[in-house]
């Protein structure tokens, strides 16, 4: 058994190394915001990070891994769940965000509570409704497992797991999750062409949506109040909770629209199941308040045909290569 394990690990590392470009900046994209000088990408660290991402040992009772609420085929979000559920079926208070292109983000979570990708994993590991553990217990567990001793040794030249090493390896895997090969990207690269409906949808998108969902990342990474009526039970103030500035009340991070076809339900609390509900919200259901985004103060007007065209464009942001790429998947281990 031991020999097979070692052999498997060997193939895993060798196979992994040859199979993919670890990190790249897609053509015409801005400079990444992550500081790679402090965490140089290596295949061994990415492999360790990926192993951690799929390991339920991170949760208090070894039942929940990151992938439970961030599954690849839904662009690393929790498909079909408005509010994500974690350990012992606990329900959280927000919709788990889709994960992609994280090197181009500076603040994480719907409210920007996390200031560096390295530190992101600490939050779900410790949250009582998610993994209900803590980084000390996780590091202790890892240090007791032979498999991790080898993974840490290959990654850091030392078999001991520490908080710093665990978090850096985690960040490395997350940095490699890049989605930049949708039909939209191919059109921009002049490899494909939009049909008439998509073309019209793209124009409508540029006119009505692009100031917040800015190309090519389809977000400005800013926080905005998009006119959702505050849920009376959750009473979520968004970014205000972090900055305590009244001007941040009801503001949430502007999410990317990439792979939006598969990241339903939508919004921070997952209140909309369908894209058509999202469009209807922006067209006619904006709830006014002091912090409402300036862009939404005047109504957005779309005919029903235009709604269809805009939706058709949004579907060109689906990146099937990304959604099914084995290098990100659990199956990719085998």
């Amino acid at each position: 058994m031991k020999k097979i394990g070692i052999l498997l690990l060997f193939f895993l590392i060798v196979g992994f190394k040859d199979s993919y470009e670890l990190f790249f900046v897609p053509a015409n994209w801005p400079k990444p915001l992550y500081d790679f000088s402090k965490n140089k990408i290596t295949s061994q660290k990415v492999l360790l990070g990926k192993t951690l991402f799929y390991d339920p040992a991170l949760s208090a009772n070894n039942t929940i891994s990151c992938a439970n609420c961030h599954s690849q085929y839904s662009a690393f979000t929790h498909v079909d769940h408005a509010l994500s559920h974690g350990i012992r079926d606990s329900i959280g208070t927000r919709n788990s965000p889709a994960l992609m292109n994280l090197a181009w983000q500076k603040l994480f979570m719907w409210d920007g509570a996390i200031n560096n990708l390295d530190m992101q994993a600490l939050a779900p590991i410790a949250h009582p409704a998610e993994m209900s553990s803590n980084i000390n217990d996780v590091v202790n567990k890892l240090n007791q497992k032979k498999m991790y001793r080898a993974l840490f040794y290959n990654a850091f030249g030392d078999s001991v797991a520490t908080g710093e090493r665990t978090l850096k390896a985690f960040a490395q895997f997350l940095l490699t999750i890049i989605s930049a090969n949708s039909k939209y990207d191919k059109v921009i690269r002049k490899e494909e062409k939009f049909n008439d409906q998509e073309k019209n949808g793209y124009q409508l998108f540029k006119k009505n949506c692009a100031s917040c969902h800015k190309e090519p990342l389809f977000t400005t990474n800013n926080f905005a109040n998009n006119g959702l009526k505050q849920d009376t039970i959750l009473k979520d103030d968004g970014r205000y909770k972090i900055t305590k500035l009244p001007s941040d009340s009801l503001k949430f991070k502007i999410p990317t629209l990439r792979n939006i076809e598969f990241t339903y339900p939508y919004m921070h609390d997952g209140r909309f199941k369908k894209l058509s509900e999202v469009l209807d919200h922006y067209i006619g259901n904006i709830s006014p308040s002091k912090t409402l985004a300036a862009e939404l103060r005047a109504p957005i007007v779309l005919t029903s045909n235009e709604k269809v065209d805009l939706t058709t464009f949004l579907l060109t942001l689906t990146d099937k290569d990304f959604l099914f790429d084995k290098k990100f998947s659990y199956a990719g281990f085998k």
């Binding site: 996390i114 200031n115 530190m119 939050a123 980084i135 908080g163 710093e164 978090l167 850096k168 960040a171």
Partner: peptide, 24 residues
């Protein structure tokens, strides 16, 4: 230092002196 990502030694988050739900 608070925004510099994961650090080691006395600054390692396993020392119990790092917030989890909000960085710092």
């Amino acid at each position: 230092t608070n925004v510099s990502g994961a650090l080691g030694g006395d600054l390692d988050p396993t020392k119990g002196m790092y917030w989890t739900w909000q960085s710092g």
